[in-house]
Amino acid sequence: MAANYWESTQRRNWQYTREQLADLRKKLEEEEPKLVQMYPLPQLRHMSIYFNQQIARLGKRLGVRQQAIATAQMYIRRFYTKVEVRRTNPYLVIAAAVYLACKMEECPHHIRLLVAEGRTLWPDFFSSDTSKLGECEFFLISKMSSQMIIHQPYRSLTSLQSIFSLTQEESALAWSIINDHYMTDMPLLFAPHIVAVTAILLSIVLRPNTTGLQSASGSAGNMANAAHQALRSVSQAKSGNGGAQSAADAKVVRFQEWLAESDIDIEAVVDCTQEVISFYEVQEQYNEKPCKEQINRFVKARGLDK
């Protein structure tokens, strides 16, 4: 992390409302009516999951830290608010984003290594010419107006976890919720600390057992209920009707009190919680096959892999 979030380019230039985002994307599609018609794509949320899986594969091969992976995901998300996906080779964009993010997060890899790994992962869609990757890196930087410092929720989580005496399981769950939020528009909608607070809230109301999130999120509905109940009490406490807490455990009460006393935007936390929950619902219906096929189709048909 560098610089101050409140004065950052992230806050000033890269945080949107849902309407703004929808407008941006609509505009991009309207500029390319033919492409859009010829190459239909699965819903954006599924595409994001697919992208994430590809980034994770590449990151794993390179042994990249989660922080750099998250930065790469942000770059990709920003990039595709400015460029219609069908004009690009997403595999090249993913590799360029990881390459750039590694430089940014001070864990650089050589460009040739990136290209070699790209070739291994996506042999039919990846050129062995390093200058392609360099060129794509340039477009990324240029599309992002060279604003490359990303503020992430991980640090807020690290500094808050002792306040709420999170157990190891709770921390791990909060951490993985933050990992997951990069598959959604949340990083473009909410400040990083809002996401961190939301992740903590969910982690304590869900009380993970050792098997972690998979079992906990088994029912997105339960998750929603628990989270909403906790947040409702916060709002009440804030508006002076305090003491209405149910038999929630001490940790939740403590969290509620802390949140109520803080200046954190509770509306945003409520909103963000809802986003997380609906993401897990969407994820249950995710199917890799159509994403892969439809992306590969336009990349091949348009010769973007050359």
Binding site: K103, M104, I111, L133, E137
Partner: peptide, 22 residues
């Protein structure tokens, strides 16, 4: 740009941009 992008963006340039932007 170093030799037709072969090496990607010069690290000096990246560092300079990264920080001066903020």
């Amino acid at each position: 740009i170093q030799t037709d992008y072969k090496e990607g963006m010069a690290p000096d340039a990246i560092r300079e941009l990264k920080h001066l932007q903020e």
